[in-house]
Nucleic acid binder design. Structure first.
Length: 290
RNA sequence: GCAGGGAUAGUGAAGCGGUCAAACACGGGUGACUGUAAAUCAUCUGGCUCAGCCUUCGGGGGUUCGAAUCCCUCUCCCUGCA
């Protein structure tokens, strides 16, 4: 198993900057594990690396999805595994950074997803109520033991898979180092506030306007909170300060979910706030020498 | 100045004499999570020595066994007539 470095953390924690720096120093390439940066055109609000950064370090899994077509964890896993292989074959170090827990875990724990399901069936099931979906599952004689019967999506998944369950998660990928970045609450608030301001200064509102006109206001990535709030703003529904406030609020909410997600992963090496680069380099060096 | 309407928990908003610490939504806390994951779902969300008690429904004063709900009055906001 080739070595893999993974960097996780809350949104705006500085993981991208750390990854970039490490890639430069250690001859690495970056795999973004971000469910929104995959979409073409959604650049400013998803905090994609700049052109200058991309010229310095190779980035993968950014701009790989069309905003009108959607994306999925399965696609992510497949592309990520391929990217790791090709990076390694070039003699470089793969560094996966991102905040989308499910995507990261799919690689870390080698999730084996069930076969694809038809969009028609999903559409049909989505239109039903929870009790109707449950009824359908019962009619099909599916074993619902252990399924969260109050969560419609879970029941729908069960039906789509015709009762099949995903295989149990595998052990953590070998030869993998997971670094975690954690910030104090007040620091995170400040970082988020600064980042939102910077995005606005960089023309975020114009980007949203352009994307809304091109892909419609209801396309998948437009549902990302920062975009949703600014879509309301450019359409004159809310003021700029309200849009910014919502953006910040959404970032904080996301950060909380990310914390919850990563908390259960006991394999993460949480870095101290000081000398994050030095600590990382040391840990990675150890990884590569074993 | 006269005639109406309104002030409810972090926000929006129900309630309109008892079953109201007060629906619901959002916001917030905690957690679940293998093809939408910034999603979806669960749970908690006035205070406390927590099967009970205490303090809340703009301020003050009444009526009543009992009021967020009725009356008087004060303050502030909106609407119609001047």
């Amino acid at each position: 198993m080739p070595p893999l470095v993974v960097i996780v953390g809350e949104t705006a924690s500085g993981k991208s900057a750390l990854a970039h720096e490490l890639a430069k120093r250690l001859n690495g390439e970056i795999i973004s594990a971000d469910s929104w940066a995959v979409y073409k055109g959604f650049d400013i609000g998803t905090a994609k690396p700049s052109a200058a950064e991309r010229a310095e370090v190779a980035y993968h899994l950014i701009d790989v999805a069309d905003p009108l077509e959607g994306f999925s964890a399965v696609l992510f896993k497949r592309l990520a595994v391929n990217a790791i292989q090709s990076i390694v074959s070039r003699g470089k170090l793969p560094i996966m950074v991102g905040g989308t827990g499910l995507y990261i875990d799919s690689v870390l724990f080698d999730y084996s997803f069930l076969p694809a399901t038809s969009p028609e069936l999903r559409q049909e099931l989505n239109a039903l109520s929870l009790s109707e979906v449950l009824q359908r599952a019962r009619e099909l004689g599916l074993d619902m033991d252990g399924i969260d019967l109050r969560n419609k999506r879970r029941v729908i998944r069960l039906i789509e898979n015709n009762g099949a369950r995903p295989t149990r998660r595998h052990a953590l990928r070998e030869n993998t180092l997971i670094l975690g970045l954690r910030r104090k609450q007040e620091d995170l608030h400040e970082r988020i506030e600064r980042r939102v301001d910077a995005m606005v200064a960089a023309g975020f509102a114009d980007e949203v306007q352009r994307l809304g006109e091109r892909y419609g206001w209801d396309c998948e990535p437009m549902k990302a909170p920062g975009y949703r709030a600014f879509a309301d703003y450019v359409q004159g529904k809310v003021t700029l300060s309200v849009a910014k406030e919502r953006f910040r609020q959404n970032d904080l909410k996301l950060a909380k979910k990310q914390r919850t997600w990563f908390k259960r992963n006991s394999g993460i090496h949480w870095l101290n706030n000081r000398d994050e680069i030095a600590q990382s380099v040391e840990l990675i060096t150890t990884l590569l020498n074993t």
